[in-house]
Computed example of a mutant assay.
Amino acid sequence: MSVDETVEAKPRRRGSRAVFGTVIAVVVLLLFGVPWATLVWSGNAWPAPVFIAGTALFLLVAAGFPVLMLRGHGGHSDAAARAADVLLGVVWVLFTWSVIGQAAGLLLALAGVADPMRSRAVTAGVLVISAVLLVWGYAEAMRVSRVRNVEVTLPRLGPGLDGLRVVLITDTHYGPIDRSRWSRGVVDVINSLDPDIVAHTGDIADGQVAQRLSQSAPLGDVRAKYARVYVTGNHEYFSGALGWVEHMTSLGWDALHNRHLLVSRNGDSLIVAGVDDRTAAGSGLPGHHADHAAALAGADPSLPVLLLAHQPQQITGAVDHGIDLQLSGHTHGGQMWPFHYLVRIDQPVLQGLSRHSDRTQLYTSRGTGFWGPPFRIFAPSEITLLTLRTPTPTPTS
């Protein structure tokens, strides 16, 4: 880089930081400002001490929130991360229901209900609904995921593999909240399903292997008749991807780093392939990028292919390479309503089984764990049992 290019790069970096800082400031202002306006200001006509105390509380928490986020997720402080994540979940719910509450307030105004009764009714409604959803959402996030049963017909699947049981877990996100007992419970459920193949499609953890050893240790006890397979998610590339690939290998899992293996039963075979997450190329790790051609190199093109790819958006590559079924996670099903509307801007599918070509289907899990805020609202977690089926023969007349 020349001296001129260096001089030009510095203003660009400063400009990028300024834009980023402005965006963060606007987001924080909205997230905390809308609930403040609804609960404290608006037409509530609270006594002056209540108004001052409420305003001071919102200002204090809003100012502390970015600091906690930076120390927690940037500085790797689990205590700060826990506080920031809980706070993010609480303010998201308050923001969502404050917006809905403001709309309800307009309806009450049209019905002739005057302030301060109208605004105080809205405030009470927002607080009660938010409290109920947060308690319920926390219980949903912390419980061992329910099993979701799905049958998938693959036209090219040989009869010897009919009924093959594939258990999918994804987005376990072992993180600042110690969920070692939860992890053990998930493994107990997996083993109870008597799987032929167990797949983990990434985002194992937020943190380095050494930080999350106790939470990830139960994965070593997962049982499967034919294969335990894993691919990286985007969060591995924030948390030492090479370490997690090596750790999963040490636990007895096959890390499908742009490669495949063969599963055979009763004379028929299935290719089980995996590709890196689509963000891997930007990580700077040599050889890490989503490479479907490498993953399928040397594979018999007549055999059906089960592909592990972390993000549903990677379905384009699966269609281009004639994949029969892609398994993905990443979306969390939105995790906290109505965040799913934002997820759909980035991803083609939110959750469930979908078809993307005559041959290619995609199953997107809502995720087994959670990221960040320890809440799941209208987006339950899942351990998925996929039963693969051959087509039912068409009766002849």
Results as ranks from 00 to 15, higher is better:
6 T>G: 15
9 A>D: 11
12 R>K: 14
16 S>Y: 12
18 A>P: 05
20 F>G: 07
20 F>S: 07
21 G>I: 09
22 T>H: 00
25 A>P: 00
25 A>K: 00
29 L>C: 14
30 L>A: 13
32 F>H: 15
35 P>D: 11
37 A>D: 10
42 S>L: 09
43 G>T: 10
44 N>K: 03
47 P>F: 02
48 A>G: 01
61 V>L: 11
62 A>W: 12
63 A>I: 06
65 F>Q: 15
67 V>A: 13
68 L>F: 14
68 L>S: 10
68 L>D: 02
69 M>S: 11
70 L>W: 07
70 L>H: 10
72 G>L: 08
74 G>K: 12
77 S>D: 15
80 A>Q: 01
87 L>C: 15
90 V>P: 01
90 V>N: 05
92 W>S: 13
98 S>W: 02
98 S>A: 04
99 V>N: 00
102 Q>K: 03
102 Q>F: 12
104 A>D: 03
105 G>E: 13
107 L>W: 03
109 A>L: 12
110 L>D: 01
111 A>H: 03
112 G>C: 02
112 G>Y: 03
116 P>D: 05
117 M>R: 14
119 S>R: 09
120 R>Y: 04
121 A>Q: 08
126 V>P: 07
128 V>C: 06
129 I>H: 06
129 I>A: 14
134 L>F: 03
145 S>T: 11
154 L>C: 10
157 L>E: 09
163 G>K: 08
168 L>H: 08
169 I>Q: 08
172 T>Q: 07
173 H>A: 04
173 H>C: 04
175 G>C: 08
176 P>I: 03
179 R>N: 12
185 G>Y: 13
187 V>H: 12
189 V>M: 06
191 N>V: 05
195 P>R: 02
202 G>T: 02
209 V>E: 05
210 A>R: 11
211 Q>A: 12
212 R>Q: 10
214 S>C: 03
220 G>A: 08
221 D>E: 13
228 R>V: 07
232 T>R: 06
234 N>M: 10
235 H>D: 08
236 E>K: 07
238 F>P: 05
239 S>W: 07
242 L>C: 03
243 G>E: 05
249 T>S: 15
250 S>T: 08
253 W>S: 07
260 H>C: 03
263 V>K: 10
264 S>K: 09
266 N>T: 03
270 L>D: 08
276 D>I: 03
280 A>H: 06
283 S>M: 09
287 G>A: 10
290 A>C: 11
292 H>R: 04
293 A>K: 12
296 L>N: 04
297 A>I: 00
297 A>S: 14
298 G>V: 09
302 S>Q: 06
302 S>K: 05
303 L>V: 02
306 L>R: 00
307 L>V: 05
308 L>P: 04
308 L>W: 01
313 Q>N: 00
315 I>S: 05
315 I>D: 01
317 G>I: 05
323 I>S: 00
325 L>F: 08
325 L>P: 03
327 L>N: 02
330 H>C: 09
334 G>H: 09
339 F>R: 05
345 I>Y: 06
348 P>W: 11
349 V>F: 04
356 H>E: 11
358 D>W: 00
360 T>P: 05
368 T>V: 07
369 G>Y: 08
373 P>Q: 14
375 F>W: 06
378 F>W: 14
382 E>V: 12
389 R>S: 09
390 T>Y: 00
394 T>M: 08
396 T>V: 12
